[in-house]
Computed example of a mutant assay.
Amino acid sequence: MKLLRRLLIAIIALVAIAYAGVVGYMYVNQRALQYAATGPVIPLADTALSGAEDIALPSGDGVIHGWYQAPRPGLPVIVYYKGNSKSFGEEHERYEAFVAAGYGFIAFDYRGFPASPGQITEDNILADAITAYDWAAAKGDPLVIWGRSIGSGPATYVASQRDAKALLLETPFLSAVGVAAERYPYLPVYWVMQDQFRSDVWIKDVAEPVFVGHGTADTTIDVSNGERLYALAPNPYELWIVPGVGHSDLWAAGIWDKARPFFESVMTP
Rank of each mutant, 00 (worst) to 15 (best):
L57M: 05
Y81H: 12
W256K: 01
I12L: 15
S160A: 15
G102E: 04
M267R: 03
V144M: 10
W202L: 11
H65E: 05
E122K: 11
A10L: 14
I241H: 08
A233N: 01
R5V: 15
Y103C: 06
A13H: 14
V210C: 03
P43V: 07
T268G: 02
F98W: 13
I42G: 00
G215Y: 10
V41R: 05
K2W: 02
K258F: 08
V15P: 06
I150P: 03
A164Y: 04
P269V: 13
P58Q: 09
Q161L: 07
I42A: 00
D257T: 11
H214L: 09
V189T: 12
Q194G: 05
Y133K: 04
A253Y: 05
P236H: 08
Y190K: 00
I241C: 03
P188F: 15
Y110C: 00
V22C: 02
P154W: 01
A13F: 13
I130Y: 06
D61W: 02
P185H: 13
P114C: 13
N29T: 05
D200Y: 12
A164N: 02
I255W: 05
Y230R: 00
M26D: 05
S116L: 04
V99I: 06
Y27H: 03
G215N: 08
Y186V: 11
Y190A: 00
L4I: 10
A138V: 00
A52F: 12
G89T: 10
P188D: 09
F105Y: 01
Q161R: 15
A166N: 05
A45K: 02
P43C: 12
K165G: 09
V144T: 14
G83F: 15
A136N: 14
V22R: 01
V79G: 10
S50F: 10
F98G: 08
Q69W: 10
W240S: 05
F262M: 01
W240V: 03
D109W: 14
L126G: 02
A13Q: 12
K2V: 09
V242A: 06
A10S: 14
N84P: 12
P261L: 08
P185Y: 13
Q119I: 04
Y184F: 15
M193N: 06
P73H: 12
A137G: 08
V212E: 07
Q161F: 13
M267S: 09
L33A: 10
D249Q: 15
Q30K: 08
V245R: 05
T131H: 00
I9W: 14
E227V: 15
P236N: 09
Q161M: 11
Y103H: 02
V22W: 01
P76D: 06
L14S: 12
L239M: 06
P209A: 08
D163Q: 15
W191L: 07
L168C: 12
S224W: 10
I78E: 07
F173G: 01
N84C: 11
